[in-house]
Each structure stands twice: as structure tokens, then as C-alpha cells.
Design a binder for these strands. Sequence first.
RNA 1: GGCGGCGUAGCCAAGUGGUUAAGGCAGAGGUCUGCAAAACCUCUAUCCCCGGUUCGAAUCCGGGCGCCGCCUCCA
Length: 486
Amino acid sequence: MSLRAYNTLTGRKEDFVERDRGRVGMYVCGPTVHDYIHIGNARTFLTFDVIRRYLLYKGYQVLFVQNITDVEDKIINKARQLGLGWQEVAQKFEREFYQDMEKLGIMPADVQPRATEQIDFMIKMISTLEEKGYAYRVDGDVYFSISQFKEYGQLSKRNVDEMMAGSRVEVDERKRHPLDFALWKSSKAGEPGWDSPWGRGRPGWHIECSAMSLNYLGFGFDIHGGAQDLIFPHHENEIAQAEGYKQEKPFVRYWLHGGMLQINEEEMHKSLGNFVTVHELLEKENPNVVRLLMLGSHYRSGLNFTEEKLEEVRKAYGRMAEVVSRLDFLSRQAPKEAPRSPDISTLERALYETRPAFEEAMDDDFNTARALSAVFELIRLVNSLTQSSEFVLTSRAREVLTQARELIMELGGVLGLRFEEGRAVDQSRLFALVDLLLEIREEARSRRDWQMADRIRYGLSRQGIMVEDRPDGPIWKIKSDADTAL
RNA sequence: GGCGGCGUAGCCAAGUGGUUAAGGCAGAGGUCUGCAAAACCUCUAUCCCCGGUUCGAAUCCGGGCGCCGCCUCCA
């Protein structure tokens, strides 16, 4: 079964055929670093993280590029507001972005260029567009003339003239067409600026992504992603710039767009007070829960984010994590003899059926919800076997369960779910366990139950934990090469 | 006004021409059980309405009703 993906450009699911055999070039519009990223951003980034992971799982060599927009009006405004330099604002929120992404378990991009490091290439593109008649100057600004690009509107399926009628845009009289957009903006004093053929200025927002994707992935790369709100005008403009510049098409083979996230049935807005940043959400929420919530519906659908849904997903994730730790435990146990082996045939069969079901779902335009159901089905069968009263951990059963564990971990991993965090036992928990055992031992000693007391001491010493009884109570230390007391 | 999408169980959500209509959460009953927790089993859907196409429709077509997103910086 081959991979199919919904391409916004054609409006259909299409077979995925990469430009260069076995290699996929992928670009996802990154953040403007003027504030913490919000959970809407997170949804999009999680979506493309999963797509990327699945492509890797399928054996593609993926080159993943994402920009950092570190010069833009919002950053400048924020800096004014805070009385900081624009670079300081950009640097701070770029750092926060990386931290949030890491917490969300999103793989770092292979290349993550900053807009300010690509100015030369943008200037080159704009100059070429100007030479080829796609751009014109007004004062110190340079605009792209959409009338010169016949296919403008192809991605968003808009008729440029019809749009004019219902347009709410305030028309800038200096532009030849209301939808013409800035390639280069002149900078006023105190604003960031670079020297250019058009004077001191800075790039328009749309040119960045064209420049960076072209620079790192080359023309005609495979996947360009973002959320649906970027289809128009941002991605439409990117196509116009890139195809105008190269005089070729297509700029991108597959345009993938994620659906919008809402909070309590409303669009997220600071003014509505429902603006949730990843930073604050992850202060109290497990990132895997957030991810699982997003995976529960198709990436192209709208998604309503609510506290109730979060609560449901917490439980579902708890079930997944629990079965993984149960399997961890069982796979470490010594197998037992049994007169009658438990019936493992159902689970054995499921082991063969789960992966194809998972792949079929993911191959069909990355249907994570359906893929997840295959994993949950496997989990149910594991529980059904291990929790039944007749269950005995024979060596064959252990083998099958270990395979089940590996499969759950692997497929969960393709979706970016991490179970190992819940399993890590940190030192303070280990110490608390030793203390608990010593408490029990003291109770045994006070009952003069020397057998129990010795058993605990011996058991601990086998783990390298030495107990010494002193008049004022026991102390313990971990035996090491230097035999240092803790 | 233009473009796109949605309406499936109490809730969330897959499925898009023929399967017992996935899965998660919640609820009821049951099993297991020293207590607790977990888990498993069973039950709960005339697929928004009305027509049409078809041997056969949740799935395709037409109409209606309801809802949403985008069209402006926006992931």
C-alpha cells in the first residue's frame, strides 16, 4: 500500500511520489518569535512532526527545514512595548520556542534558518523578480504585482477579481492592485534595516519562506506544510514569488495544510481571554497527553480544545503508559513452568495484524486517529491475556508479550508518544524505597523477627546497598569502588 | 458576497458504495478481588431531514435545515 496525501493545490488525495527517489524535502512555516507559541501553533508543529516521523518510518531520508522569523513588525512592536531591542525580543522567544518544542517531543528541524541570516538571498530574489517584471517600486518599498502572475489564486482557488467585491481590505492607493504585497519595506530610523538596491529596509514576510525553502531544498521540493490560515495569502504569495523567480513550476509538489484549533468552540484570541501558550499548558500537563489529544482527530479537521477533552485523554494515555510498564515488568521476570500454557494465539495473531492496520491508516493521508485505534486494540488484547486468572508467564508467553511491548513502543514512537519518561525511576524515589524497607526492617527487629530483618538486609546488600545498625538507628550506603558513604 | 469544510452512540472521533459502522472517554450490569488499584466481558447508533441514482448508500447526486473556518497579521 502506498502513501497518499491530500494536496491542497489539487484538492485531492494523491499518491505520494517524491522528487528524488528515497529522499523527501519538507518545509514547514515556523514561528515569528515575538511571543510564546500557542497551542494552535503546537497543533500544526505536532502534525508535521508526525508526518515527518512516519516518512522516516517508511524509510525515506527526510530533510526538514523550518524558518525562524526574527524580523517582523510584531517583534518591533513588542520590543517598543517592553523597551527592549528587537533582537533581544527575538532571541528570547526563539529560545522559548526551542524549549517548548523539545518538551512537546518534536524533533528538531534539520535546518532552522533565521530570516535575518538570509537577507542576501532574499534581495537577490527580489531583484530578479524586478528584472522579470513581477515587481515594482513605490518610494522605498517593493511590491509584487499579482497581475503579472497569471496563476495567482491557484492554491486558494480564488478568483482575484471576485474577491475585490467583498474585500474588506483597506486599499493602499500606491499599489497597482489591492492584493499586491510587499517584498521589501523601507525602514524608518530606529527600525531594523539592511542596505539594498532600494535603500535601507527589511524583507516582507512572504519572501522569507520562499527564499529559505528554495535555498535549502531547491525548487520543486516535496512537501510544504502549514495551517489552513496560511493558504491565503501567505502560501499563495510564496508560489507567486518562487515560480516568478524561477520561471518554472511547480514550486512545491504537495501542499499540506492542518485544520484550525479552537478553544471551547471559539477561535483563540488574546482579547477573548482564551489564549493558551504551550509554555503555561506544559507547566501542568504531560506533553504526551497534549500530543495524544491532537492525534485523536484528523489533522485536516478543526479541533476543539477543552479541559474535558484533556481529562479524557489523560485517562487514555494513562492506560497506554500502564500497559507499557506492565509489559516492562513482565519481560524482566523469569518465565514459569505451567502444566497448561495460556492461550496466546489471539495475541500472536494481533501482532501480525496491528502493523498493517497502522500503516494502512497512516498511508491514507496520515490518519492518526485510525492508526491509534489499532494500537489500542493491541493494548486491549495484551490486557485481556495478562489479566486473566489462568495467565502464567511461560517463556513463550513472555516472548509474545515482549514483542507486543516492542510493537507498542515502536508504533507509539512513530506518533511521537514517549513512554520511557514514566518509567524512569529517579534517585529520590529510589532512596525513598530504601528508607521504606528499613522502616519495615526496624518493625521486624522490634518484634525480634530476625529472619525478616536479615532477609531485608541481605536483599539490599545484593543490590549493593549496605545497611549498618547503630545505637541510634540504621544507616545505609551504596557500595561503590571508593566505598563512599552517602 | 466569494472559497473551503462539517453534521456518525451521552461526549469526542474514524469510516466515504456491500464488513458485526474502528477507537477513546463517560454510564449500566457482570467477572476478578483480603483492602486498594488496574484490567477484562456484555449492553447503549433507524449514520441531521427529504428526494434521487443503484441489486445495494453513512458513503454518490439534488434540495433543505443547522454549524464552522478562511477571505485582515494569524499555525
